[in-house]
Simulated scan of single mutants.
Amino acid sequence: MPKKIAFSVIYVTDEDPKYKSTELNTHAPTVKGWQTSKNCEYPQEIVLQLERRCTLNKIQILAHQYLIPSKIELFSSNEDTNMISDVTNINWEYLGYITLSDNQSTGFKSRELKSANVPKCLVSFIKLKLHKNHNNSYNINNQA
């Protein structure tokens, strides 16, 4: 039966000082969320360490209503969490990618929840690689 797995953000390439990656560690309506810094370089990466090793077959991502990456690549690793001292030493397996709507049809008012089936695998870490944002008049600083 599918269930939500707790995780911690252990690495990001960039973040806005007002919207830190640690915001992603808490799941509640009052959470501000994470954003890249203004006019950042793409792609951006986020590495998540799962609470425990688990079998993964689906990922869900909730996107902002107008700070939207055009594509997110998904990677997994089953390395022992006790053996990792630096995220650059993690060996990644490519799982695929998802594309996100530019959200013009909703007037940039709705957030997109994207579910992606991935090849079934045992996972300790997940890496998300966010590609250039969709351009729109609300996102003047090219953030995701």
Results as ranks from 00 to 15, higher is better:
residue 55 T to F: 03
residue 6 A to H: 14
residue 114 K to T: 12
residue 8 S to R: 15
residue 90 I to S: 14
residue 11 Y to I: 05
residue 64 H to A: 02
residue 131 H to M: 09
residue 104 Q to L: 09
residue 104 Q to I: 09
residue 29 P to L: 10
residue 119 P to E: 05
residue 8 S to N: 14
residue 105 S to I: 14
residue 22 T to E: 15
residue 13 T to A: 02
residue 18 K to S: 15
residue 113 L to S: 14
residue 48 L to I: 07
residue 70 S to Q: 13
residue 65 Q to C: 14
residue 60 Q to A: 15
residue 31 V to W: 00
residue 74 L to A: 02
residue 138 Y to N: 14
residue 11 Y to E: 02
residue 13 T to G: 08
residue 19 Y to A: 08
residue 17 P to I: 11
residue 72 I to D: 01
residue 135 N to R: 12
residue 128 L to K: 06
residue 4 K to C: 10
residue 55 T to D: 14
residue 77 S to R: 04
residue 135 N to M: 09
residue 104 Q to F: 12
residue 39 N to V: 02
residue 64 H to F: 08
residue 132 K to V: 15
residue 108 F to P: 01
residue 62 L to S: 10
residue 16 D to C: 05
residue 80 D to S: 15
residue 121 C to Q: 05
residue 14 D to V: 04
residue 29 P to I: 11
residue 22 T to D: 15
residue 25 N to Q: 12
residue 125 F to S: 08
residue 7 F to V: 06
residue 65 Q to Y: 07
residue 22 T to M: 10
residue 87 V to P: 10
residue 122 L to K: 12
residue 112 E to P: 06
residue 10 I to G: 08
residue 43 P to R: 07
residue 130 L to D: 02
residue 138 Y to G: 13
residue 8 S to A: 11
residue 18 K to F: 12
residue 143 Q to C: 15
residue 132 K to M: 13
residue 34 W to D: 04
residue 27 H to R: 13
residue 109 K to G: 03
residue 83 M to I: 15
residue 62 L to D: 04
residue 132 K to Y: 14
residue 97 Y to Q: 08
residue 36 T to A: 07
residue 107 G to R: 04
residue 143 Q to V: 11
residue 75 F to S: 04
residue 140 I to N: 14
residue 66 Y to T: 06
residue 117 N to H: 12
residue 40 C to W: 01
residue 113 L to Q: 09
residue 3 K to D: 06
residue 40 C to N: 03
residue 56 L to D: 05
residue 96 G to F: 04
residue 19 Y to Q: 05
